[in-house]
């Protein structure tokens, strides 16, 4: 079953086509990698799908429902949630409050305060943040802050989670931990799309990879196919 279909999605900033005519399908339960050089339009694609910005043309179908044109909070409630490249936790709020906010407002339908508390604690256990519950989010290390963002996203009970460079700036141990976390998330039945520059991570955990360049999709396939693809090698290593 396909959980997400993107059809001919385009976005221009002035004369620049940041994303042009991108089609992509995401199977339910897979981990899909999204790679490409800087400025390829990866984050813009995330912004378009999650409703941060509206596309110039094309549409996004999530769970058999057109979601392009909806506001981000509505898209989040439908079960499609994202994290940010430049980590965006809520400074001034504790880790617990960060995640609780996701549970209270991001879940589809109404949720009682007690239920939200239970779910928040579960997710803090799941992401191994339970000990940091009362710590202000901004005082954590980058790795932990990124985890808080993921925990907050998970609290909204997503069907599809979009991770924007979750591993950038992390050391090898932290990258390994994050990879483990992504696998654990997928094993819960949550589909994952991840933008990543850390090739080791992408090649190891993604079942499928899509390559963007200058706003266009230029290749798609298994990690093996992508690593042998001539165009991709040219883009990454120069002609």
């Amino acid at each position: 079953m396909q959980i997400l279909q993107v059809e001919g999605l385009s976005k221009n900033f002035g004369g620049l086509a940041a994303v042009s005519g991108v089609d992509l399908q995401v199977e339910s339960g897979e981990i899909l990698g999204l790679i490409g050089p800087n400025g390829a339009g990866k984050t813009t694609l995330f912004n378009l799908i999650s409703g941060t910005i509206a596309p110039n043309s094309g549409k996004v179908i999530f769970n058999n429902e057109v979601i392009s044109g909806l506001k981000p909070h509505a898209i989040c409630k439908k079960g499609l949630v994202r994290t940010f490249q430049s980590c965006k936790t809520f400074p001034g709020m504790s880790v617990y409050q960060n995640v609780l906010l996701g549970a209270l407002f991001g879940s589809p339908g109404k949720i009682s305060r007690e239920q939200a508390d239970v779910e928040t604690r579960e997710i803090l256990e799941f992401t191994e943040l339970a000990e940091l519950s009362d710590v202000p989010a901004e005082s954590l290390t980058l790795e932990k802050q990124k985890k808080v963002e993921v925990a907050r996203a998970l609290a909204t009970k997503p069907k599809l989670l979009m991770l924007d460079e979750m591993m950038a700036g992390l050391n090898p141990t932290e990258v390994a931990e994050s990879m483990e976390l992504v696998r654990k998330i997928r094993d819960k039945g949550i589909t994952v799309i991840m933008i990543e520059h850390v090739m080791k991570a992408i090649m190891n955990i993604c079942e499928r990879i899509i390559v963007l360049d200058h706003g266009k999709k230029i290749a798609e396939g298994t990690p093996e196919e992508i690593s042998k693809n001539k165009t991709v090698i040219e883009i990454y290593l120069g002609e």
Partner: peptide, 11 residues
């Protein structure tokens, strides 16, 4: 504290 994140968290 961060409106963009709040919006993407369902607020």
């Amino acid at each position: 504290s961060c409106e963009e994140a709040a919006v993407h968290t369902g607020v």
